[in-house]
Write a protein that binds this DNA or RNA. Sequence first.
DNA 1: ATTTCAATGAAACTGAGTTTCATTATCAGG
DNA 2: CCTGATAATGAAACTCAGTTTCATTGAAAT
Lengths: 165, 165
Amino acid sequence: MTKTAEVILFPRHAKNPAQFRTWLASISSTFKKYLEGKGLNLTHQREEVLKCLLSAGNHMSLDDVYAAAKKKDPTIGRATVFRTLKLLEECGLAAEVGSADGRTRFEIKADRPHHDHMICIECGRIAEFESPMMERFQNKAIRQHKFIALWHRHEIFGRCELCAK
Amino acid sequence: MTKTAEVILFPRHAKNPAQFRTWLASISSTFKKYLEGKGLNLTHQREEVLKCLLSAGNHMSLDDVYAAAKKKDPTIGRATVFRTLKLLEECGLAAEVGSADGRTRFEIKADRPHHDHMICIECGRIAEFESPMMERFQNKAIRQHKFIALWHRHEIFGRCELCAK
DNA sequence: ATTTCAATGAAACTGAGTTTCATTATCAGG
DNA sequence: CCTGATAATGAAACTCAGTTTCATTGAAAT
């Protein structure tokens, strides 16, 4: 039986500055290509939003990203942040994650293994976990139902180790 | 390796009228006890809401239940339906389920095995599936994280067999 | 009958998410 | 460089499922 991998995935790339720059460059480039395909441009506002989301060590709500981006560029608007997050989601670079407070959070999906979430209802912390075996049986159920799965949401709500005391 | 059970769970009790009456009686009684514990009563409006949700062959939104209840009793209000659904949820008799259209749906949870959902983004149909093995590996991940799981949401979005053509 | 408090329906409110709109930036062709 | 076309933006307004308020009704307990 395969051991279920236990990984804290998120700040992986953010730890090493050089690695972070490479990661940012790679994702920026992908984003730029996607935008160009739609006749759009990678503006400095859009790049700022992407940078904020990438450098965060945790999952961010729209207003988290807005606040972070505003620090770097006080003229940036909430609508732009919103629209950029939607664009990132659209092209598969970012994904929405549920939360304990009802506000959707965002995470970078590109260049990261698939994972699901455990959400603490006390502190709001979102932990990521991978379970290839779980995926396997999920896929089996999908096949049995002849269902064409496009995306899924697997979120476990409860108390994290620290908040459980 | 256990075969993943494939069950269409929902209208199970609703098929047989006698069985349905027994089921309704049992759940009504549980609900009544819960309400009495809080100094509340099982009013005819509350019972009507419960009956509507029980007899439905599919998952219902607040307004679905409201419409169904209004047919039986035109004076019933949306607020009452809302509050009753919350009460049913509170005591574990009902649960919220996501949907393709953004409106939360409700299902009866009492006396039914645990299951997750596949939601068709074309027709809105919500299929239920069970996978004990999947649960098993999910629980393993939860244990490994020393997480206290209170509830979870596992919803797969895509196209059902019919809508996939 | 009177008091008390749960229960109700209609209507108003909430707030995350989204869209509108007038203005500003950007770019391609001249 | 200009110039026209169109992408992009920020502020503010809007949406709408979900929720709460409030004045009224109902029901149980004296």
